[in-house]
Amino acid sequence: MKSKLIVTFVLLTTCLAAFSQEKHQASVAEKGLLKVVVMYPYAEGKTFNMEYYETKHMPMVAGFLGANLVKYTIEKGLASGMPNQPLPFMAIGTFYIKSLSEYQAAIGPHRDAIRADFANYTNISPVILVSEVVK
């Protein structure tokens, strides 16, 4: 019985150490990258088609970015951080990129097509933030 506890403890400790190291490596790998965060604010009467956004819009935009794109993420808003408060954002799309100037050069020629595609999934005007990952 005691040996089973020791083996379980060793396995658990090994798994936790591996998870911690993986999390640290991911954090270090993202440090210095730039993020283009596209946020879709919640408002009464606004709509958002997550399936279209996930399967059509974001892959289209990601395709324009080429090797400058490290990864992208899509988030679906669920609730506010405060009880009984409205949802702040219906969705957030984030592009992790290496160079802002390369991003702008890649997006520029496709800006009209990207904006025209909004009508296929939302009636919300997005808020865009460009930032740098510091940790």
Rank of each mutant, 00 (worst) to 15 (best):
P41W: 02
T8P: 00
V133Y: 01
K76T: 06
A91C: 03
V127R: 12
L78H: 10
Y103S: 01
L129I: 15
F95R: 00
T73K: 11
K35A: 07
A116D: 13
M39V: 08
M58Y: 05
R115C: 08
T94I: 11
F48S: 01
Y103G: 00
C15A: 14
H57I: 03
P88S: 09
V134I: 15
K56I: 08
A91S: 09
F9P: 00
A106V: 03
D117F: 06
S80L: 09
F9K: 06
L34H: 09
M82F: 11
Y40G: 00
V36S: 03
V38T: 07
Y72G: 08
M60F: 15
M90R: 01
P41K: 03
A113L: 11
L11S: 12
P109C: 04
H110S: 05
N49D: 15
Q21A: 14
Q104G: 08
P109S: 07
A119D: 12
I97W: 02
K31R: 14
Y72F: 12
I124Y: 02
A106H: 01
V37A: 09
P109H: 04
S3I: 14
G45V: 10
V130L: 12
S3H: 14
I74G: 00
G45Y: 10
K71E: 13
A113S: 14
Q21N: 12
T55N: 12
G45A: 08
A43I: 08
F9D: 07
N68H: 05
L78M: 14
V133I: 09
E75H: 14
Y52D: 04
